[in-house]
């Protein structure tokens, strides 16, 4: 388990836990909840912002927020 900003491009993971106090509610409402699947689609230069697919939503967030999302990578099948 590690913070989301360390995920590799194209890697899929499951959201393990989130630090509610530091995450915008909007992100949670867009599906950033423990148990949902997350994948990193693209990175802007300097690995910031991050372009993600969370559950069914496609969205971009900044690195400083991504640190508060802990994920567990899924094995490639």
């Amino acid at each position: 388990m590690f913070p989301l900003d360390q995920l590799a491009i194209g890697q899929k993971a499951i959201i393990e836990s989130i630090e509610t106090d530091f995450l915008p509610l909007k992100l949670i409402e867009m599906g950033c909840l423990p148990g949902n699947e997350i994948s990193l689609l693209h990175l802007a230069p300097f690995r910031d912002p991050l372009y993600l697919k969370i559950d069914e939503a496609h969205l971009a967030i900044r690195k400083d927020v991504a640190r508060y999302i802990m994920v567990k990578p899924l094995m490639d099948d």
Binding site: P24, L27, P49, Y51, H58, L59, A60, I61, R62
Partner: peptide
């Protein structure tokens, strides 16, 4: 208002 950077990437 507090604002956060959460940008939807539409189709």
């Amino acid at each position: 208002n507090k604002s956060y950077f959460v940008v939807e990437m539409p189709n």
